[in-house]
């Protein structure tokens, strides 16, 4: 998995398509097997922000784990730039729900972690590149601090820098702003959107917040309740650069109502099936690995 030569790793942003075809995934022993993903097809077009939204416990995180290569699907295939995914790799960067910065490394060491381990950049280039990205996410004053000394929002920004330094073909954001207070969350959304609009890196953003989804998305993919499959794809035709004010427009309101209608139907379905299911999934996901 060494597609990106180090020389081009600095300047150019790779723009690639991601295709997901016929994904199926189930958990559990044969006698209480639960289908989590069923026949899921999904395209993440190059240079676009594809936002996936679905009822809680529907299998969003499993989807992320499969695309990232942490888990193997029972059937189906994920192709990044035409290449099938066989395991984790630095062409796909995941920003996790809770921070996954190494607490024992400073911000700068965390940001340099990937390229340093892979030995891709010489020391001086790496240092300059890490400093540039740390500046970009506004953590210049904090680059020698440890993650536990930072606020939640700062941790997420450090994590964005740690992902971006690898020049991934695909950024996978798994509810990255969950757990932040409303204020930091809004700031992070705006900040993240600005980054995206600047470099237009292919992005898959998973969320359960409808406003966040519409604010960020080029394409909004609504998943069904478990087992997850694509219920609907809504093209969000709002101008970029986006502002929060656009969320108050009639168009945005229509998108929101359309998505909420589907989500509501799906939520009712899962409610009727009993909520025990989603507890099972969470418990299993914790136990897996």
């Amino acid at each position: 998995m060494h597609q990106t030569p180090p020389a081009s790793a600095l300047g150019r942003i790779p723009r690639v398509n991601v295709e997901i075809r016929g994904l199926n995934m189930a958990y559990g022993e044969a006698w209480h097997r639960q289908q989590v993903i069923t026949d899921l097809d999904l395209d993440v077009p190059a240079g676009q922000m594809t936002v996936v939204i679905g009822p809680s416990g529907c299998g969003k995180s499993t989807l992320v784990n499969i695309i990232a290569g942490f888990e193997k699907p029972d059937s189906g295939i994920v192709r990044v730039d035409g290449q099938p995914v066989t395991g984790p790799g630095h062409d796909r960067m995941v920003v996790f729900q809770e921070t996954a910065l190494m607490p024992w490394l400073t911000v700068r060491q965390n940001v340099s972690f990937g390229p340093q381990l892979r030995g891709e950049m010489d020391r001086a280039t790496l240092r300059a590149e890490a400093d540039r990205l740390i500046d970009k996410v506004g953590l210049r004053e904090f680059k020698d601090k440890y993650p536990l000394q930072l606020s939640g929002g700062m941790q997420r920004r450090a994590e964005l820098a740690r992902a971006m330094i690898n020049q991934p073909k695909l950024m996978i954001m798994d509810e990255p702003f969950r757990g932040l207070d409303a204020m930091s969350r809004e700031l992070m959304q705006e900040f993240f959107l600005k980054l995206f609009e600047e470099n237009r890196r292919t992005n898959l953003f998973v969320t359960s917040e409808i406003d966040e989804a519409i604010f960020l998305a080029d394409r909004l993919v609504v998943l069904s309740t478990r087992p997850a499959t694509v219920r609907s794809v809504i093209e969000i035709d709002l101008p970029r650069p986006r502002t929060y004010a656009m969320l108050a427009s009639e168009k945005a309101f229509d998108y929101k109502r359309e998505a909420l209608d589907i989500l509501h139907q799906e939520a009712m379905k899962s409610f009727k099936m009993g909520s025990g299911q989603s507890d099972f999934l969470e418990a299993y996901a914790k136990r897996a690995q």
Binding site: E98, A100, L101, M102, L117, N166
Partner: peptide
């Protein structure tokens, strides 16, 4: 936490690393 192993794998570290 499993998240650190996943992050390390994602960033391309080998088992020894």
């Amino acid at each position: 936490d499993e998240a650190y192993f996943r992050a390390a794998g994602c960033l391309g570290s080998k088992p020894r690393q």
